[in-house]
Design a protein around this nucleic acid. Structure first.
Length: 296
DNA sequence: CCGATTACCTGCACGC
DNA sequence: TGCGTGCAGGTAATCG
């Protein structure tokens, strides 16, 4: 899954196809993903126009004119692809860049642009940890989104705010940064990457960098900057590519993001002047990668 | 307030 | 070739 940068990349890929377009037909090919599809899922979407495609943390929000907001989560293995009607095709048929199995294609949106151009937006999710729900009002008040913390995009997340969030926390930094109630959108990869950039150990007790001293303030400032930059860099790179993640337009030519520590167990630390090596440890049942030499 | 464990589900890499 | 094992970006519930 896509973490925040991948979801944002998906949003940007789908936006030109969906915004202003009409959902001609919507089909859920099974009764549930992680959760059952909402009542009258297809009926409430078909014939309606998409007014906006947004994102909050790792959630996509599809705003429907005179309708609900469709909240989508990609889970671990969810992806969207777009198929467009080719000019050389028989009308009503669709082509795409490469053969792609329809296995695990769970939702199909038949879409018509304002000019009448047809395309299909297909949600594929082998593990089915993803889900789609309706928010009847403002999506931010939906139970799924209401408790989310601050977005790590933009400049709102600064040293003092991060210090306030971490103050008094006894959990390891890794767990605190994964907590969506504090910062929304970080996942297993980018937490490891941000901590490496900041020179902070994932094992470090979170509250210990939230003190009033000069050193703690500097550490918070550096960690906040590291979080913002790692997310911004990943979005700029078009999201990372991992396993079954597929960019929204299905293209293969996207940037292959290279991580400093994630999935680099045993490799030398790439921090200039550091002689350490990347280790893999397990925290909260999940892999953490870090360099014990330069991350304290 | 914590963390660890388990669950959800499929696919893939690995060792034998 | 097959089969068992462990691991994978997500969230959430349960237990100590």
């Amino acid at each position: 899954m896509p973490e925040l940068p991948e979801v944002e990349t998906v949003r940007r890929g789908l936006q030109p196809v969906l915004e202003g377009a009409r959902l001609v037909n919507v089909e859920a090919r099974r009764p549930d993903l992680r959760f059952p599809f909402p009542e009258r899922f297809s009926e409430r979407l078909a014939g309606k126009t998409v007014t906006a495609l947004g994102r909050r943390a790792k959630y996509l929000t599809m705003h429907i004119e005179d309708g609900p907001v469709l909240i989508c989560h990609l889970g671990m293995s969810g992806s969207f692809r777009v198929e467009t009607a080719g000019s050389s095709d028989i009308p009503g048929t669709f082509h795409h860049e490469r053969p792609k199995s329809a296995a695990h294609d769970h939702v199909v949106f038949d879409v018509a642009s304002p000019k009448g151009e047809r395309s299909r937006v297909i949600f594929n999710d082998p593990r089915r940890f993803g889900f789609m729900l309706f928010a009847e009002g403002a999506p931010d008040t939906h139970p799924m989104l209401a408790g989310l913390g601050i977005e790590p995009t933009g400049n709102a997340l600064d040293g003092p705010l991060l210090a306030a969030l971490l103050k008094g926390r006894r959990s390891p930094l890794k767990a605190a940064l994964l907590d969506q109630r504090l910062i929304a959108g970080l996942g297993n990869i980018y937490v490891s990457e941000a901590l490496w950039r900041a020179g902070l150990s994932p094992l470090r007790e979170a509250g210990t960098i939230a003190g009033s001293g000069k050193k703690a303030k500097q550490q918070c400032e550096r960690l906040a900057e590291s979080i913002r930059s790692v997310i911004a860099d990943a979005i700029a790179a078009g999201g990372s590519s991992l396993r079954d993640y597929v960019q929204a337009d299905g293209s293969l030519g996207y940037f292959q993001h290279s991580f400093a520590v994630y999935d680099r167990e045993g490799q030398p630390c790439s921090k200039p002047g550091c002689s350490g090596h990347i280790e893999r440890i397990v925290q909260s049942g999940r892999s953490t990668f870090y360099c014990r030499t330069c991350q304290r």
